[in-house]
Nucleic acid binder design. Structure first.
Length: 201
DNA sequence: AGACTGATATTCT
DNA sequence: GAATATCAGTCTA
């Protein structure tokens, strides 16, 4: 109940302002926040921004059955199947429809034993180091597509005071490779991959 | 360390 | 039919 986020169907809620911005700003803003699903999750250490005018975005060619949530309300989840087997979690944002931030990695902080069971491995570093791994660890599936981040089972709240943000090119793309819209918590051991350079925050 | 491979949904050509 | 916002396993070095 005492979530940082209100229900984003209320247009005056603070999180609606938080997410009604360019996805690159939102991606940067999310680094360091604690994201949980039914109390299981951790600190966001890696994100990527996707804008509807960006050729790498699922929304670039317009609305389809899969990406419908990207055209819905800001602050809600967009979940899609990747390479036919993994789930990937995004948060819809932007000041126009069709933008989102992909959550790429978490530093596990809550429900670690349950995450180990779901992932079938012990190594803390690999529990949530990647968009597919993170969804498996948190139990995110298509059932979460379109749900608001500001209400159960989701929770999202700030956790850090001062930290440095790393910036670099997005991963696994063949289009718009040069657009540096990948953000990370500098020096984190829980990234899916290291960053080439670091800038201050 | 890096290279290859398989699993296989969804979209686009 | 080919490509993709992936991961784990299994090779070779």
């Amino acid at each position: 109940m005492t979530s940082f986020l209100a229900d984003s169907s209320d247009p005056s809620a603070p999180d609606v302002k938080l997410f009604t911005r360019h996805p690159a700003e939102v991606a940067r803003e999310l680094i360091g926040m604690i994201l949980t699903v039914d109390g299981v999750g951790g600190r966001v250490v890696e994100t990527e921004a996707y804008h509807h005018e960006d050729p790498a975005s699922h929304a670039y060619n317009g609305q389809t059955a899969r990406n419908g949530a990207m055209f819905g309300p800001v602050g809600h989840a967009y979940v899609y199947r990747s390479y036919g087997l993994h789930w990937c979690l995004n948060i819809v944002c932007g000041d126009t429809p069709g933008s989102a931030v992909l959550i790429r990695a978490l530093e596990p902080t809550a429900g670690i034993e349950l995450m180990r069971e779901r992932r079938g491995m012990e190594a803390l570093r690999l529990l949530c180091a990647g968009p597919g791994r993170l969804c498996q660890a948190l139990g995110v599936t298509l059932a979460h597509d379109g749900l608001p981040l500001g209400a159960a089972p989701f929770a999202l709240e700030p956790s850090l005071q001062d930290w440095e943000i790393a910036v670099g090119p997005r991963i696994g793309l063949t289009k718009a490779i040069q657009t540096p819209w990948r953000y990370g918590l500098a020096g984190s051991k829980f990234l899916s991959r290291p960053f080439p350079k670091v800038v201050a925050s």
